[in-house]
């Protein structure tokens, strides 16, 4: 492989890494109760884009509630805390 090809392969793989992280984050939010929405309201005021972000988060949260996914994060938390004797 030439250095150029190496570079292209590394770039492609890094994009794949970033994309997988992004999709996994969305999945994590989807199965994690309301924690992301809570955070958006606690966020510092970002001026002109603040309303847009809040509106986006609220809409996303509404869609999520309509679909009604399981709160796997909460369940994982309960199991782990029970196993460690933290409850």
């Amino acid at each position: 492989m030439t250095p150029d090809q190496d570079r292209k392969r590394d770039t492609r793989q890094h994009w794949l890494f970033v994309l997988t992280l992004t999709l996994s984050l969305i999945a994590a939010w989807f199965f994690s109760g309301e924690r992301f929405l809570d955070w958006v309201f606690e966020m510092p005021d970002l001026g002109p884009v603040d309303d847009m972000i809040i509106e986006f988060a609220v809409t996303a949260q509404e869609v999520k509630e309509q679909i009604g996914p399981e709160d796997y994060f909460g369940q994982t938390r309960d199991v782990l805390h029970r196993l460690l004797g933290l409850n």
């Binding site: 793989q13 890494f17 992280l21 996994s24 984050l25 994060f73």
Partner: peptide
């Protein structure tokens, strides 16, 4: 690469 990213997310989640 996909597994590397998943390891990170699952680790952070845990």
């Amino acid at each position: 690469t996909i597994v590397q990213a998943l390891v990170l997310i699952v680790g952070v989640w845990t």
